[in-house]
């Protein structure tokens, strides 16, 4: 156990030091990303104003809150991509990680977790500016804040698991980009990234319950912005935990089969 703890601590420290050297690159990336929620925010605020100030339970102020929190959750959602897995497998880069006495997923989880620390620090001024411009209505309770803190890290783990599973498809076929595109489209619709799920038709909302997407994206935002009662907040955390466990078990089971198909030398 101590072995893992030390490894995580060292790896996170390493990635924090590494990423802290590129604040400008990190910022450019973030600003490009912020354009997307700002567009949604403007469109939906316009719709809300046209409908007398509220649509689907959101006012322009709460839309602003939703999409500003969105930017943080989106950043927490950045994990090692399936395209990275493809590269790793196709180019034989995996060989090196296989020599280490630890599952390569630990490296990914630790490295990106460290990066998140840098990302959150850089995000704070950006969120401040966005708040000045768009004036969000956000009054979370202490419980909501605590749940949110755990929910974004759990969301990070869920997305790490699901995207690793997706990336591991590359062990069987290298024609994966079409599959990835479909996955990301489904995620866009069912996660709450395009619009808060409460604006979706009833059946889409019901459907979203059974996919990991909303637990990795919409739920953390709604936990902070919405008025979820305590039991719903806890149910949400439970669902997140279930998806993490399910993901971790699937990854380790599939890994055992998949790794036999890996035949690269060198790397």
């Amino acid at each position: 156990m101590k072995r893992y703890f030390d490894y995580y601590r060292a790896m996170m420290k390493l990635s924090i030091l590494e990423q802290w050297q590129y604040p400008v690159a990190n910022y450019f990336y973030m600003i490009g990303m912020v354009a997307e929620p700002v567009i949604y925010m403007v469109v939906w605020s316009a719709v809300a104003r046209q409908q007398g100030g509220m649509v689907g339970g959101y006012t322009p102020g709460t839309f602003a809150a939703y999409y500003i929190v969105w930017t943080l959750v989106r950043n927490m959602n950045i994990v090692f991509t399936p395209y990275g897995w493809e590269w790793r497998i196709r180019q034989g880069q995996l060989s090196m990680s296989l020599l280490r006495p630890m599952h390569p997923l630990h490296g990914d989880v630790a490295y990106f977790a460290g990066w998140k620390v840098v990302v959150i620090l850089l995000w704070l001024p950006l969120a401040f500016i966005l708040s000045l411009i768009f004036k969000p209505e956000l009054n979370p309770t202490l419980l909501q804040g605590v749940v949110f803190f755990f929910a974004i890290w759990m969301a990070y783990l869920i997305r790490t698991m699901t995207l690793s599973l997706l990336g591991m498809v590359t062990f069987w076929t290298t024609r994966v980009s079409a599959l990835f595109e479909l996955y990301f489209a489904a995620e866009l619709i069912l996660s709450g990234r395009l619009v808060p799920l409460s604006l979706m038709p009833e059946w889409v909302q019901n459907l979203a319950w059974f996919f990991p997407f909303r637990w990795a994206f919409g739920f953390p935002i709604e936990a902070l912005v919405g008025n979820m009662p305590a039991n719903e907040l806890l149910t949400g955390l439970g669902m997140q935990l279930a998806w993490i466990l399910f993901g971790a078990i699937s990854v380790s089971l599939i890994w055992k089969v998949a790794i036999r198909r890996f035949s690269a030398v060198g790397g």
């Binding site: 690159a25 450019f28 354009a35 997307e36 567009i39 403007v42 469109v43 316009a46």
Partner: peptide, 25 residues
């Protein structure tokens, strides 16, 4: 290189007519 990413983000704003955006934008 990050500029390409930045442009794609901003170009996405074109999906809607610009009349709907606040003045500065």
């Amino acid at each position: 290189h990050e500029i390409a990413n930045l442009f794609e983000g901003l170009y996405a704003a074109g999906r809607w007519p610009i009349d709907i955006y606040p003045n500065w934008l």
